[in-house]
Nucleic acid binder design. Structure first.
Lengths: 138, 138
DNA sequence: CAGTATCCGGCCGGATACTG
DNA sequence: CAGTATCCGGCCGGATACTG
């Protein structure tokens, strides 16, 4: 169930009577997607990775449109998943710092990969949409 | 606005008075995430990439839990984004084939990368969750 | 076969107000 | 500062039934 050692794509792999694919994930990346790519987790992880350890308000300011409630929720989830570390300093006023964990940092190359794909292909997607809509209009 | 040529992480990059981060994406991968990583797009893309060109029913059978309505919706979106190609054969009964496009195929290495991360780190996430919950219970 | 049409529930995320 | 408490709307996805 690790099975990923080389891209191995193209039609029909060497499947010898493969079971009718499990319930949820016909693809092995289903679980990761749930963990890493939700509405706000990606921006949070990215920001933490880019700007290093920072406080709640700093995250709030960098990720401009997020609300405190949602930011808290996502941070808790990320902490639970072990992707970030939360440090509480019992002072007055309270001070809390968030930083990316080693586990979370391991996602950096992946994010870079994603950013690469985006920078070279995003306008092709844009173009495709335009073409599709134009064709549909006729 | 391409800016990604090397991982460049770690605290404080070379930001000289960076603007207060744009509205939505504090991170450049926001848009890609919306396009590629939604509930069903990933399994669909993966299946298409793995098993090659196939018909609607085949996809339905491989991605066991998806409903026809949702499958159609996602396929349309993916087609509009130029990640897959839909071919309609006007026969009786009708025959439609879906295949991944060149643009979509470009995601294969990324998916492999993701699968790699998953296979080596998913149980660490699992472990982290367990620890977190155990600590919370006390 | 390859969908479309309806209806419907749940959940996520946003808005607003308040607190140790 | 770093959140929590409430309320609420929208949308996505699921269930079910039907069609060129």
């Amino acid at each position: 169930m690790h099975m990923a050692e080389g891209t191995r794509m193209a039609g029909k792999p060497t499947w010898t009577a493969r079971t009718p694919t499990n319930p949820e994930d016909a693809c092995p990346i289903g679980p990761v997607v749930d963990i890493v790519f939700s509405r706000w987790t990606t921006p949070i992880l990215w920001t933490l990775n880019e700007y290093g350890r920072q406080r709640f308000v700093e995250l709030e300011r960098r990720i401009t449109t997020i609300t405190p409630k949602v930011l808290t929720q996502r941070l808790r989830q990320l902490e639970r998943d072990g992707l970030i570390v939360r440090t509480y300093h019992p002072e007055v006023p309270p001070r809390v710092e968030y930083e990316i964990s080693d586990l979370g940092r391991g996602l950096a190359p992946l994010f870079a990969h994603l950013a690469d794909w985006a920078s070279t292909n995003l306008d092709r997607v844009e173009q495709a949409r335009h073409d599709y809509d134009a064709k549909a209009a006729r």
